[in-house]
Structure formats: C-alpha cells, structure tokens
Design a protein around this nucleic acid. Sequence first.
RNA 1: UGGCCGAUAGUGUAAUGGUAGCACAGCAGAUUCUGGUUCUGCUUGUGAGGGUUCAAAUCCUUCUCGGCCAGCCA
Length: 565
Amino acid sequence: MVNPANSSEKPKNFIERIIENDIASGNTPSGVITRFPPEPNGYLHIGHAKSITLNFTLAEKYNGTCHLRFDDTNPAKEELEYIESIKRDISWLGFSWQPHEYYASDYFGLIYDIAEKLIIEGKAYVDSLSAEEIRHYRGTLKEPGRESPDRDRSVDENLRLFREMRDGKHHDGTYVLRAKIDMKSPNLNMRDPTLFRIKKIDHHRTGATWSIYPMYDFTHPLSDAVEHVTHSICTLEFEDHRPLYDWVVENSGLESVPHQYEFSRLNLNYTVMSKRLLLQLVKDGHVAGWDDPRMPTLSGMRRRGYSPEAIRNFVELTGVAKTVGTVDHALLDHCLREDLNLRAKRLMAVLDPVTVIIDNYPDDTVEWFDAENNPEDSSAGTRKIPFSREILIEREDFMEDPPKKYFRLAPGREIRLKHAYYITCTHIVKHNNQILEIHCTYDPESRGGSSPDERKVRGTSHWVSAKHAVDCEIRLYDRLFSAEVPGEKTGNFLDDINPDSIKVIAGCKAENSIISVQPGEYLQFMRTGYFCLDAVDSTPELPVFNRTLPLRDSWEKLKKKMGIS
RNA sequence: UGGCCGAUAGUGUAAUGGUAGCACAGCAGAUUCUGGUUCUGCUUGUGAGGGUUCAAAUCCUUCUCGGCCAGCCA
C-alpha cells in the first residue's frame, strides 16, 4: 500500500484506471475519444452535468477529445429548441466540443447500409408481427422467447420489404427490421432486438428524407464506431445493453471498436432528475418553465444564481462508481457557498424594513462611507454607501424583549451598523402593537464601525439609508419538494411539491448601488444570503432578485434548540 | 425458483492481501465590523456466516439485502 503521507494525488476512479490501462497496452493509438450523447428531447439537468464533466475532463486529462453528439433518432420527441439549450448549457459549464459537433441523424445513410449488409448476411430480418405480438413472442424475464414466423424470410424478400419500408410504402407499425440473435437469451436485449421502425414523420434535421428511423441500440454503437470513440461512457441502466452494443460493433464491418462502460447516475435528494418528470412539471405549470429557478435544470440553476464552477466541483466530489446511491443536497449547498463566498459582491438589502431614527444625528446631513465589496478578495475594491438620520434595518434585528443570547438591537442595547456607527436604542414608537419607529442615538466616535476605546459590540446589523434606498422585489426559493424522495409515500411525486418553494417579497429596500447590478453577477446581501438579478423578470423600474441560497444561520439553529419560534 | 450489476460512518467516496482514510452532515470550542467566513477538536463504518493466510474491506464460499432489464423510448 502507498504511504498516504507523501502521495497527495487524487485517487483514480475505475474508468480512469481502464483508460490508463488501455493507453499502456496501446489500445488507443489515435488517442482517447469520449462523447456526450444527449437526446434533444428536454433540457439538461445537474445529472447531465456529471456526465458532461466526466466525459470532457477525461478527454482533457488524457489529451483526447470529447464529441458532442445529438442522439436524434426519434423525431417524435425531439426539437430544435432543445438542441440550442443543450449547447448553451454545455458552454456555460465551461466545456467546448469544437469542432466535434455531430448528429446521429448524419449517419442515417450509413446505418441504413449496415442494416442491408446484415440482411444480406442473414443477420437481420423484416418482421410483420405487431408490436403486441412481438412483446408476446419475446417471452418474460424467466421464460425464453419464441422465434417469429418471419424469422426465416429469404434474404431477397427481406431486402425488398426493407427497401419498401425505406421508400415509405408501408404504414407505421406494419414492419420492423430485427436483428437475428437469440430468442432464448436470458438477456432480453438479445432476443432479436428491433433495429429499424417505420415512422412517417419529419425529422428536425433530415426533414422528410426518411420514413424509417434506427433504434438507439443500433445507432449508438455505430455512431461511436464511426467517430472512433474509444470509451463510450453511459449510466448503469445500459449494462444489459452492452452485449448488444458489442454485437452491433462486431457485425457492422466497421474498423473501429469502441467499448461501453457504465457508471451510476447522479441522484440528489429533495429533487427529481428524470426528463419525463421535469417535462411534466413544466407542461402542467407547476413551475414557470424549464428555467424556473427551482428546477434542477442547468438553465434553472443558472437563473437561480449557481456558478458553473460550483456545479462542476460538486459533481467531481460525488465521484465515479457503480454503486446506486443518493447524494445529500447539503453537499451541493456546501459547494455553492464555498464558491460564492469567494466571489460574491457584498451589498446591503433589507427584506422586511423597520425604521430607525437616530435622534442625535443632524437631519440635513448625508455621509458616504467606504464599504469593502468582498472581505475575501481585496481586489474587489470598495464602494460608497450613504448614511443619514433615518435608516431601515431588518425587522427581525430588533426585539423589545429579547431572549438570552440575542445579540441584536433591543431597548438600551448598543449594536454596530455595518461600515457606519454604533447606535443605542433609547425608545420605540408603536401603534397597534406594531413597531413604527425605533429611536436611537449614535456615537460619533464610532465612525466607520469601530470605536477608539475598542469596546465590543456583540451585534452588527445591515441597513440602508431610508431616503437613498432602492425598491426591489426579492424571491426566496426553497427546495421544490419537501420529501427526500418525491413520491415515495403516495407514488405521485406531485404530492410532495413544497408549497413554500417560492416566497415573493415586495417592498424590499436595497442600497442604491444595486441599480448597476447586471444579470449574471454573483451577490451576497450581507447577513441574508446569496442573490442574483433575475434575468427574465427584472425591469428598470423594479429589479427582481433571486435568492440563490441563504447563508448558514447558526442563530436559526440556536433558536430552535432554545425553543424560540 | 431468468440474467446482469452492486454492498465501507447518517450521505457520497478512497484503501486492489499489510495502520480503514477523505469530504459533506452532526456535535463542542476559538476567532470575527456578516450569528457569514476561517480555525481546532470530537462522534460515527467494512451486510451475515464459514474458509484460505502470519495478516482479509480486499481472495474463495454460502446467504442476505438493494438496483436494472419484458418500448416499434433513449
């Protein structure tokens, strides 16, 4: 065993080991080639980010290339919009496939030719069984299948019928082309799988050229072979397909011999990660679209304020293995905070304002304080923030009758206003039990946030100058589902939608410098959380901010422990 | 009683016959002009039985548990 003390190298995952073995044994004379093969039938989600990151970083690590290939063999489900969103998301993550952008549909002609070759070699046949009959003939998990009556159709007849299928002479469902493998195989994928089916619909790229389309199991290995992919990495549910993958490659007559390897897909608790369910959320209006900030889609996360670096780091941390498991969402949160803490520009915004009047501060004076933009990064510089007699603080930063360990403002207490002065509460004005004004005095000696006598103040509040504050709307997001595994109890994932997954807060007040914030900037509203300008719904009159993630809040924890609501 | 795959702290992932580590979460404390950050310490694990071996998470064996597969989806 290696001494861990002097080997700081990152441990290799099983795919890296395979690749290194292949390189060492000379199996990759033209270099390592991987591919990311999305079907353009939906938006990419964080699960895809794992596959994307794996394939692109593997290629990079071993001086190879990673192809982007759209697996567009089912025109009934695929759309141009999805192709565009997929490319946008991969680029946003920071990966480039240039110039290797391919489409399975580019190979339709070649795939067709290989099908004819298989027919001629007696390895494929045209079957006139209906879909339902094929299902019956296939047998079950425990019982072998039976051979189709058409299995021994002559080569000439097969060829004639297949060409008629191609030429649109038959209706959908009347015939399929099947591989002749083994109806008794314990692996159902090998029981004469369908290679081509008739679909008389236009394809988003090939138009009306084809009335037959190849199946995934036929298309994928051939596409890999054509592109000289060496390591075709997919998720665990394709393990059973590998023998078929190998059969197709072996019988294709193509030189290149790609190999398929499977790893376990990313599962995250408190969310769903299937395109079908995500599509349902969108179509049924449970969310505002594929890019709703609550969606685990990359476009949703981008709009929410996630950084691509945080996502990449997260998927790297989850590792590559074959164990089926579920990653705790807390790890994602951690990666996000870790990244945003270093880069987010600090600003002050008050979500639930209450007025503070500083009685001994002159009414006509405005002071401009220097505030650091990011304590983690001095190169981020400073900005000026205005201070005046009437300011706004967070309503929850004041308590008339505070419990133990409450360090914020209360009658007779002194706190610091971040970057400004120490203030002490003298009295409050209430109406109908609602606090209207908190009256304070300030200590002129504490200018800038510290006093010459170096006395300690336990609390520091964020604030905005009332007459300089800018109105904004703030949207607080929480997890979309309140159950770790949505739908586990009732069988319907919609039952677990979190009713409080979005809270829209109007009447928020932010320091005036937010007017220059651009979409895509990472922000921290001090003591509150990470935010970003909503790129869709913001207007010049009313900026809208999405809360990406709240800050860790140990006071919240303490309150729970002490039984304070 | 079909086939394939898997099983290491609460979660994820290392250790490939030689001291069971790491990260997150949790707990306790320190620091702090953000109850943030940072720092320190702590708790917690090889599914079960049998075997091989000086030595087993690792090899063999039996069992248990979990995942995937019966689309003309990918």
